[in-house]
Design a protein around this nucleic acid. Structure first.
Length: 160
DNA sequence: GCCAACGTTGGC
DNA sequence: GCCAACGTTGGC
């Protein structure tokens, strides 16, 4: 199974790369979009690389790296009555939604902002740079991943 | 806080 | 199966 590359969005108010650094691993529940679910359920595998993207942030952008620690498994919060991720259409017997676990890899010393992504040659086709792109789990190519990693590392050396 | 873009729902 | 209405996302 070839290693795959992903971008996963989260609002800083909910979870940040610093939180992931502290926790080591985290579960990624609450995704309620079919396209994103299909990626998590069918295509993510342990060891896949993840760009951690902070949305609705100042600025929004990639703040670090993670890896998939556990492949897609049913989102048990979806059948917990009263939970904020409850969905009556989902049950333990017939799960509708799926989640994965992430492991911390690296925190950038800053943010590779969306503006930077948009201005970087080679990233023109990234899903996140497209107008109106709301998908919270997106595939990226290895080339795109490598470019973002380089941009993130440069952030760190520039600071010192 | 605004609002454009998007996904989902539901009436017909 | 169409499409208007609605709720949500997310950049600015």
């Amino acid at each position: 199974m070839a290693k795959k590359y992903w971008l996963m969005k989260c609002e800083p108010a909910a979870y940040t790369i610093a939180d992931l650094k502290r926790d080591g691993t985290t579960s990624w529940e609450g995704v309620r979009n079919y396209q994103a679910r299909n990626f998590m359920r069918d295509e993510m595998h342990v060891g896949d690389a993840v760009l951690f993207y902070a949305s609705n942030a100042d600025p929004s952008g990639v703040t670090g790296l993670a890896t998939i620690a556990r492949a897609g498994y049913p989102d048990q919060f979806s059948w917990k009555k009263g939970h904020k991720y409850f969905d009556a259409a989902s049950s333990k017997e017939k799960p509708l939604w799926y989640m994965v676990d992430l492991a911390f890899k690296k925190q950038f010393d800053g943010t590779v902002s969306l503006a930077t992504l948009k201005n970087t040659p080679g990233l023109e086709d990234m899903v996140v740079t497209r107008r109106g792109s709301r998908l919270s789990v997106q595939p990226v190519t290895k080339a795109e991943y490598d470019i973002v990693v380089r941009l993130g590392s440069k952030l760190q050396s520039a600071r010192r």
